[in-house]
Amino acid sequence: MTSLLRIELRKLLPYSTFWVLLLLQCCLLFIFFYARGNVMVNGQMAGAELYQFPKLWMHLAYISSFLNLIPGILIIILVSDEYAFRTLRQQVIDGFSRANLVQSKYSIILLLALLLAAYVLFLGLGFGLYHGQNTDTSSIFTDSQYIFYYLVQLVGYMSLAMLVAFLVRKTGLAIMVFMAYTLVVERLIQWQTPDALDKYFPMKTLGALTPNPHAEIEQLMLGVTDTLSPVQALAPAVLYVTLFCFLSYQLLRSRDL
């Protein structure tokens, strides 16, 4: 796996598209956090109230989850590029197995998820310490498991993006299919499905990993919906990641490169 990651990094590090999207994601995360903290609520900066340890972790994980589309699109570009350049084919000729192709993309997914989760953790520390009132050092990392849930969510989103890219092969079309599914199609299906079942749907399961800190207000307005708790969602989310990788592998095996 590490040798596969090394090969992937050789492709990735000189690739400007990768850096542009990564920078965009990091800037947007910062802007989201900053803007949300500077909203005035009742004559008081919201950040003063929101960004207190330990509840800020749940909050940040929830806000960050709104930006999962960009890492997904990045993975789609990286996979569909390999089709456009016909380099998947060349790597199989040169000695890779179909499983290696999926493993190498999965290694990049893990790396990106780790990087982004670490970045959010770092931003959280920064915002928390800046806004913190009488910060008790012992409570800083309490509830920071939400960053871990965010990491699993990222892996889930990007694994789905990888599957879509392996399936569709064309960059633009794959991005559209990915966005249509994550933003529209699944919600339409959820609408027609009983809660007991639809809480296990991929997007809803992944979404449940980073719950809305103000869920009570949301439910007040939109009606009560049954969702998994982050701990409950963990196992199905990992199962989905495994399934997306396995399906990607089956696709590669059954089709000509």
Binding site: R6, R10, T87, D94
Partner: peptide, 23 residues
């Protein structure tokens, strides 16, 4: 096979490094 398959944004040498790693 058919066409030369390489990453267009990499140099010739960088491309061969990837091939060498795969092999």
């Amino acid at each position: 096979l058919e066409t030369p398959n390489f990453y267009p944004y990499l140099t010739g040498e960088e491309n061969l490094r990837i091939t060498a790693d795969v092999k």
